[in-house]
């Protein structure tokens, strides 16, 4: 499985990272190097092995379904790049 520049451009779009055209070939080479190296996992037969999503837990804890935090809009917006009228702002999405 080898990634060409078109595939890398697609991954960059999915990741929402702009990659200049002239950098695609170099990046493809790097990513291919890493992906070739991880291919060695295919040496291991994992038939019937359950995927481990995380360290074994004793079941997720539960709490009453009530509001227990909030009412701090100033704190939430304190680090926003361009807040306005108590909201985050983004470029116009709907014409």
């Amino acid at each position: 499985m080898s990634l060409d520049t078109k595939a890398v451009a697609h991954i960059a779009t999915l990741a929402r990272i702009r990659v200049p055209e002239q950098d695609l070939a170099g990046l493809a080479k790097e990513l291919n190097g890493i992906m070739t190296w991880v291919e060695q996992l295919n040496e291991v037969d994992t038939t019937g092995v359950e995927p481990m999503t995380g360290v074994e837990q004793r079941g997720l804890p539960q709490r009453p379904d009530v509001v227990n935090d909030g009412a701090m809009p100033d704190k939430i917006l304190a680090n926003a790049p361009e807040p306005a009228h108590g909201f985050f702002t983004v470029p116009k999405v709907v014409e």
């Binding site: 779009t13 990741a15 929402r16 990272i17 702009r18 990659v19 680090n79 926003a80 790049p81 361009e82 985050f88 983004v90 470029p91 999405v93």
Partner: peptide
């Protein structure tokens, strides 16, 4: 993503802002 904290690089569209900010 340039919306809630940290760096924001302006873009014409929302996707462009995300992409330029993260670049």
């Amino acid at each position: 993503d340039g919306v809630r904290f940290g760096l924001r690089v302006p873009g014409k569209t929302l996707d462009e802002m995300y992409e330029l900010t993260r670049e």
